[in-house]
Amino acid sequence: MLKKITGIFMFLGLLALPLFAGDEPKKAEDFTLEDYNGVKHSLSDYKDSKAIVLMFIATQCPVSNAYNTRMVEFYKDYSKKNVAVIGINSNKQESVEEIKDHSKTHGFEFTVLKDWNNIIADKFEASFTPEIYVLNSKFEVLYHGRIDDSSRENNVKSKDLRAAVDNILAGKPVVVASTKAFGCTIKRVE
């Protein structure tokens, strides 16, 4: 009888294993890219941050540009809470000079890195702009998706990125860890 019960539990345990495995967050590998001034930045430089926000952005995408002010505000609000905010431009047709001009024009105080040959976009499987990944200090991806639920700021009902980072800062699990939105496809090298 005891053997039977043990067997049933073992069977149930085996069934549960893939679920737990599937729920484990993906872990990002360390990488190094240059910003528009040619300064190198590695993901590991930010390991002491409470959260790392990677934003795949563009200079020419109207949806990404609709979020410029919101990105600036996000940086102002969260950089003082020890959250690292980093922009990544993986679009093949957007030059370093263009990224520099764009960042200055829109008052980006956060670092913007150039991802030549979309290598980092490929590693993260990022496909559109603006697309966000939030990592903890162990580089585990705890949130992936949009900044909020409307490119029109007046229509926003759900501030998904802020909610996810607030969860992390509070030491709580991220309630909504994945969201979707329409965006511009990242133009990759052929």
Partner: peptide, 19 residues
């Protein structure tokens, strides 16, 4: 109402990149 469910209703693997 919800971009997520509209996108998912076309394909769960699609994350909204256009076209």
């Amino acid at each position: 109402e919800n971009q997520d469910s509209f996108i998912n209703s076309l394909n769960i693997k699609w994350n909204g990149a256009l076209p």
